[in-house]
């Protein structure tokens, strides 16, 4: 009976009930081919991208934070979301290192997150070393504070007294392990507002913990006004919820998912309203704002290399949805004829 039913199936019926294994196989082939093609094509396959206001504001703020100040990076992602989060951290690190901004990195979400972040820092440090740029040194330029299991409590103590929040933490210095507060990175930080910026790179809801507990005073970096020093780089899935906070003015900027990484890389290459950029990236809200880019440097990286796969993946998704609907329509119209 089952075989008979199989034989009697029309094209429309087959199209609307493709076996899931077939779909999975097509996805594997399409994504693998796209990633390999991007790898071999290199800069020839840089697809255009139009950065949104949220990414432009994020980039502009990071580009204006004063040289020598300290940025707190709360890195709450692990290898599971490296496709999105690794690219976000890499682009942020490239900017901070090029601008000689110090940073400290820690996690409130996952015990493995600090190691993953340190591996990423090591990759970018090596990249700079191979290009003959200044080596970014642990202890002098950046420190790792590790993992804090009680996220809510730690965020609360960062707000109430940042000098006590990381008490007892030690990091590697040239002279051996030392108290992190002796490091040039934390030496001058007395209150939360002494931080240049506070950036959360997350694959979960950790931004909620920070929004509820951290309160930054509005600040000025020269002529550049910052209403809030908290910024977020989150995965695509967390984007819709985090946009709430961005649109309510609780974040200075927001970078979402892989598309956000490409936006950052595009901005690093072309700047904002910057005449020297290869392409003009306009910021409609403030046409007077000019933020330079880094044309000629390693800007296009992980985001750009996955971007083609994002396109083909989305195209496949759309095609699958269309195929299902066309199949359903054909099957229905076929039934109508038979009746």
């Amino acid at each position: 009976m089952a075989d008979l039913a199989q034989e009697e199936r029309t094209f429309g019926e087959k199209l609307q009930s493709l076996p899931r294994q077939v779909l999975y196989l097509i996805l594997i082939v399409v994504i693998s081919a796209s990633v390999i093609a991007s790898k071999f094509a290199g800069p020839a396959l840089v697809l255009p991208n139009k950065p949104g206001n949220n990414a432009i504001e994020f980039y502009a703020t990071v580009m204006n934070v004063p040289e020598g100040s300290t940025v707190a990076i709360q890195s709450d992602w692990t290898n599971s979301t490296r496709g999105e989060s690794a690219g976000q951290l890499e682009s942020l690190l490239r900017i901070l290192m090029r601008r000689n901004v110090k940073f400290m990195v820690y996690s409130l979400a996952d015990p493995q997150a600090p190691q993953v972040a340190r591996d990423t820092i090591a990759r970018i440090t090596l990249e700079r070393k191979l290009k003959g740029e200044r080596e970014y040194k642990r202890w002098d330029d950046w420190i790792s504070l590790g993992f804090f299991p009680n996220g809510e409590g730690t965020a609360k103590s960062i707000q109430s007294d940042i000098r006590k929040a990381f008490k007892g933490k030690r990091d590697v210095s040239p002279e051996g392990p030392r108290d992190v507060y002796q490091s040039p990175v934390l030496k001058n930080i007395q209150t939360l507002d002494d931080l240049g910026l506070y950036i959360n790179i997350t694959a979960s809801k950790t931004i909620d913990v920070l929004i509820e507990r951290l309160k930054f005073k509005p600040a000025r970096f020269g002529d550049f006004e910052v209403k809030n020093k908290l910024g977020s780089m989150c995965t695509g899935v967390m984007g819709p919820e985090t946009v709430n906070y961005y649109s309510a003015g609780l974040l200075f900027g927001l970078v979402v998912g892989l598309n956000g990484v490409v936006e950052m890389e595009t901005l690093m290459e072309n700047g904002v309203n910057w005449p020297e950029g290869k392409k003009t990236v306009e910021y409609a809200k403030d046409k007077q704002l000019v933020v330079p880019g880094w044309t000629g440097k390693q800007n296009y990286a992980r985001g750009t290399s996955y971007y083609f796969a994002l396109h083909t993946g989305m195209a496949l998704l759309i095609l699958a949805v269309l195929a299902g609907n066309i199949g359903m329509w054909l099957a229905r119209s076929g039934k109508g004829k038979n009746a």
Partner: peptide
């Protein structure tokens, strides 16, 4: 463990495709 975590997470890509194909019907 971390790699197996990542592998489990990446399964979502396949499931999104099959779920969207099945559910998005006019």
């Amino acid at each position: 463990l971390q790699q197996m975590d990542a592998a489990m997470f990446s399964l979502i890509a396949f499931f999104i495709l099959s779920a969207a194909y099945r559910a998005f019907r006019i």
